Amino acid sequence: MEKVTFRQMKDGTREEYVFLEQLEDNFNQGLVDRLLDALRRLENSLSGYQVTRLEHSLQSAARAEADGADEDMIVAALLHDLGDDLAPYNHSQLAAAIIRPYVRAEVTWVIHHHGLFQKVYYAHHFGEDPHERDRYRDHPWYQSCVNFCERYDQAAFDPDYPTPPLEHFEPMLRRIFARQPFDPEVIGEEHPLEP
């Protein structure tokens, strides 16, 4: 079989869906390569900072690594702004959706909310509430997100910070994304990802 015959999903046969599942499994083997390509494209993304978006991502991951963070958090720091090009107003949620099947729930929650938590640094310049994140103050991962933003994200715009190349993080990326998606032993207990 080269293609399914159905034109509506409800008309597909088991044989066709097994065929499609095999194709999808094969395609998914290239996920890390597609993520690496997407990260490389950040080199020519949003400008105006002293570092490129790729350098910011690399520096965020390098800061997480230097801080002793585990691979879940380091890879999350690397990918946290991957959605800037395609989802500029909800980039945090896009990045969280990418990592969610592969990392512990705490890390997904942090990445999902980091855009809101970052507002503490600049929202006042636009007449917005810089403390909007405080609505999550009682959440068990609130401080993790505060720490992520303070230590890894907002500090990662320094052109003089020693930052390794993307290839340094590739083995970690491959290990994380080689995990069985949605493995409860990895993800643990999830919390709602409300905005």
Rank of each mutant, 00 (worst) to 15 (best):
D70S: 15
I99H: 00
P130I: 04
R137T: 04
A156W: 01
L78T: 01
E190Q: 15
N90R: 11
E2L: 02
E128I: 00
F117E: 06
M9F: 11
V32F: 09
Q29M: 08
L166V: 07
E189N: 13
L193E: 12
R100K: 12
H168F: 08
E167K: 04
N147Y: 15
F182V: 13
L86P: 00
A123T: 03
R179E: 15
E21K: 02
L94F: 06
Y121C: 06
R174W: 07
V51D: 02
D81I: 07
P101R: 10
F117C: 00
F27H: 09
D153Y: 08
I176H: 10
V32R: 09
D158V: 10
E185V: 14
H125R: 12
R135Y: 03
Y89T: 07
H56W: 00
L116Y: 07
L193V: 10
D129S: 03
L82P: 01
L86S: 01
E170H: 06
N28C: 14
I187P: 12
E194G: 14
H80S: 09
R133K: 08
Q180N: 14
H139C: 12
T108Y: 11
H131T: 08
H125W: 07
G68I: 15
Y161E: 04
I74K: 09
L173E: 14
Q154L: 04
Y161R: 03
V18F: 10
A96T: 05
A178H: 11
G127I: 06
N26H: 14
H113E: 01
E43V: 12
F177E: 10
A96W: 01
P101T: 06
D138R: 01
Q50D: 08
G115L: 01
L82G: 05
L58W: 00
S60G: 13
N26P: 03
N26T: 10
Y102T: 04
V120T: 10
I99T: 01
D37I: 13
T108W: 02
R174I: 14
H80E: 00
Q180L: 14
D134Q: 07
V103P: 05
K119I: 06
T13R: 09
P171H: 07
L23Y: 02
L20I: 13
C149I: 14
Y89D: 05
H168P: 04
L116I: 12
P184G: 15
E21V: 02
A155K: 13
V186H: 10
H114Y: 02
I74H: 06
G127V: 03
R133Y: 14
F157Y: 09
D153Q: 07
